[in-house]
Simulated scan of single mutants.
Amino acid sequence: MSDSTLPQPFSDLESFVSDWALPTRAQRYEARLSKPFDELVAFYDAVAPRAEDAIAYLNGLDIDDLPDDATRLLHLLYSMILVSYAVNVFKQNRIPDSGAAFFEMVAEPAV
């Protein structure tokens, strides 16, 4: 693997890859629950302003044949979306007033 794990235009987001470029929703949700809230905010604040550019970049590729670096970028976007609820709506990692309730996802997105 090269030094860069993301497409070059998004190399400024490299520091988030190991924690947030996770392949499954369950892994992303576990990361959201296990990290301090300020880390969620820092991740969201770094990725959200780049989201439109990342989407435009990914739209230029064949979704069925993404290179590894683009797949990691897509996973970062998935994590940013999941974290956005915690940061912008709930203002905490967990869904308020949900107690021990947990929703188990039975299917993942195709990519």
Rank of each mutant, 00 (worst) to 15 (best):
V17Q: 10
S18V: 09
W20C: 03
A21H: 09
L22S: 05
T24W: 03
T24C: 03
R25T: 09
Q27L: 12
R28T: 07
E30M: 10
R32Y: 11
R32T: 12
R32S: 11
K35F: 10
P36L: 03
D38S: 14
L40Y: 02
L40M: 07
L40C: 08
F43D: 04
Y44G: 03
Y44P: 06
V47Q: 04
A48Y: 11
R50K: 13
R50S: 06
A56G: 09
A56L: 13
A56F: 09
A56M: 13
Y57M: 03
Y57V: 00
N59M: 12
G60N: 07
G60C: 05
L61A: 04
L61I: 04
L61F: 06
I63Q: 13
D65V: 08
L66Y: 08
A70M: 05
T71Y: 07
T71P: 03
T71R: 10
R72A: 07
L74F: 14
M80H: 07
M80C: 14
I81R: 15
S84A: 13
S84I: 04
S84C: 09
S84G: 13
Y85I: 08
Y85K: 12
Y85N: 11
A86R: 00
V87T: 09
K91Y: 12
Q92H: 04
I95C: 13
F102V: 12
F102M: 11
